[in-house]
Write a protein that binds this DNA or RNA. Sequence first.
DNA 1: GAATATCTTGAATGAACATTCAAGAATAAG
DNA 2: CTTATTCTTGAATGTTCATTCAAGATATTC
Lengths: 193, 193
Amino acid sequence: MRNAEFDREKVLRSAMTAFMDKGYGKTSMQDLTKATGLHPGSIYCAFDNKRGLLLAALEQYKTDRSAEFQSFFSGGRPVLVELKAYLDNIVQGCISGEAAKACLLTKALNEMAQQDEEVQKIITDNLASWQQGLADVFERAQAKGELSAKRDSQHLARFLAMGIYGLRTFAHTHPQGETLQELADQLFGDICA
Amino acid sequence: MRNAEFDREKVLRSAMTAFMDKGYGKTSMQDLTKATGLHPGSIYCAFDNKRGLLLAALEQYKTDRSAEFQSFFSGGRPVLVELKAYLDNIVQGCISGEAAKACLLTKALNEMAQQDEEVQKIITDNLASWQQGLADVFERAQAKGELSAKRDSQHLARFLAMGIYGLRTFAHTHPQGETLQELADQLFGDICA
DNA sequence: GAATATCTTGAATGAACATTCAAGAATAAG
DNA sequence: CTTATTCTTGAATGTTCATTCAAGATATTC
């Protein structure tokens, strides 16, 4: 007997950032061995192949981001205050340029569209549940009377999701943090008016 | 003496769609010879290499989209009506799924970010001039009294550009046309309120 | 119509890549 | 300590890819 030596979470997180930096296609197996510290054989033993490593990384990404989301909306403060903090955090991520200014999901979605149906389904499912999370937030804000119930929470969530997608792409063209913060503030204001 | 036999514009347009379908990296030279009808040697003679073909395709894309933009804002109708038609046209493009629902610029930008500085600069310059075009439209609407001059035209253009980027990414996850049209209408309404 | 310049063709080249595998190393069980 | 099991290692494999180039084809010029 003998146990695997590597830390699965650490490996998946480094694979994640490698994929985010270069994209799935341009990330070579050599890049991945360097990033993870694993040798090719170990990767193939643990994850089948490069695509399997992507799938596992996506799973880990989902776990990590869900936890992050929960921590932002723990309920200690007014819902809209929590939402504002969440948005500001996204803006900061765009500014710092960490991991090519894109989340793994949207980056991979842009790359894989119409090429790998299974991956695409995993990604869109993840994004849909994130969007549902936003809808729940709006629902809660409306239930607590912080937000007019005139607009449907699902509508609001869709619009915010669209705005966040757009913000990330916009960040690629405008690295200036001030402009991004302004846009995010306007987005927040339009939704919570 | 002898002149080149192929139609440069046709070749570049087919290269454009090939790059949009698969992305630059995953579009092989074989794909490109099939799409353009040119043999490898001809491509290398005319465009130096695969990257050169991308650069030329980007140039053609800029020309084509500029012409399209001008045709939408020719001035025959109220500016805001023209703008609405322009937005609806983008929504239709997203629905039909033509060319992976993304414009070549944003698709390539997502793929090349932090990898090819020259290509990135060309793309961001193109996007900046498109955004300036939108700002000019808002300026004109304000000058004609169709739109309140309270908000800066540059601000409005930034917000609309962000919305359109977001709409395209959103379309990847939600193929339903109804939702996209709703989002576009809300975006238009928020801006031209 | 001959000469010349240029373009076209597609097989050949070498590099980069994902993947495999057999040998070696390390741990656990007896 | 010995044996059995599993993990690790990294060179080898075969494929795919961008790129090159020399031979062949075609148009223009004189």
